[in-house]
C-alpha cells in the first residue's frame, strides 16, 4: 500500500529515531511530524507509523486518541484553541469563546464552511500571566479582549 510520505518527513523520522534506544519510543514525535505535514493524522499515516516503528496499528491508535494535540480529521487553516481554565476564566475567557462561536457561526469541535477556522476550548496553556489567552495552531496570543480578538481574526487569512 502506498502511504505518500514525503522524503523530507522520512528523513526527519530517521533523525528522530536516532535519539531513542527503542524505535517505539519515537511514536509521539513521529506522529507530530506526520501531523505537521497534512494537518491531521490519516489512517494511512497511522499505518505507516506502525510499520516504521514495528508496533501494531492498534498501539498507534491508542496513542493518537489519548493525546489532545493529535487530530484524526482535518482542522481549519487556523485552529483557535481558547483556554477556559480558572485564570483565563477570571479574565473573561468564557465571553471570548461565546464571541467566537457567534462570530464564526461554529461550536467547539467544528470548522467553518470555508475551511478557514476551527474552534476548540482547551485546558491551561501555561500562559496565565497573559490571560485570557489562546493558541492559533502553534502560536500563543494573550491579553485578549473582543476588539483584540477581532483584529487578530482579520489578519488570519
Amino acid at each position: 500500500m502506498s502511504h505518500n510520505i514525503p522524503d523530507r518527513v522520512k528523513r526527519r523520522v530517521e533523525d528522530i529515531l536516532s535519539r531513542y534506544p527503542r524505535r517505539e519510543a519515537a511514536l509521539l514525535p513521529v506522529l507530530s511530524a506526520l501531523q505537521e505535514e497534512r494537518g491531521f493524522l490519516s489512517h494511512s499515516d497511522e499505518e505507516w507509523a506502525a510499520d516504521t516503528l514495528g508496533i501494531p496499528p492498534a498501539k498507534v491508535r491508542e496513542v493518537v486518541t489519548f493525546y489532545s494535540l493529535f487530530r484524526r480529521k482535518p482542522a481549519g487553516r487556523h485552529h483557535l484553541q481558547v483556554c477556559t481554565n480558572v485564570s483565563c476564566a477570571l479574565n473573561g475567557a468564557d465571553g471570548l469563546l461565546s464571541h467566537l462561536r457567534k462570530k464564526l457561526g461554529i461550536a467547539e469541535g467544528e470548522t467553518s464552511a470555508d475551511g478557514r477556522f476551527s474552534l476548540s476550548s482547551v485546558e491551561c496553556l501555561g500562559h496565565c500571566d497573559e490571560a485570557p489567552c489562546l493558541m492559533v495552531n502553534d502560536e500563543h496570543y494573550g491579553r485578549l479582549d473582543r476588539r483584540a480578538l477581532d483584529e487578530l481574526l482579520e489578519k488570519l487569512e
Partner: peptide, 11 residues
C-alpha cells in the same frame, strides 16, 4: 511538562 493550571514558571 508544565501543566498544573496557573503554573508558567518553567516556561
Amino acid at each position: 511538562d508544565e501543566g498544573e493550571p496557573g503554573t508558567f514558571k518553567d516556561r
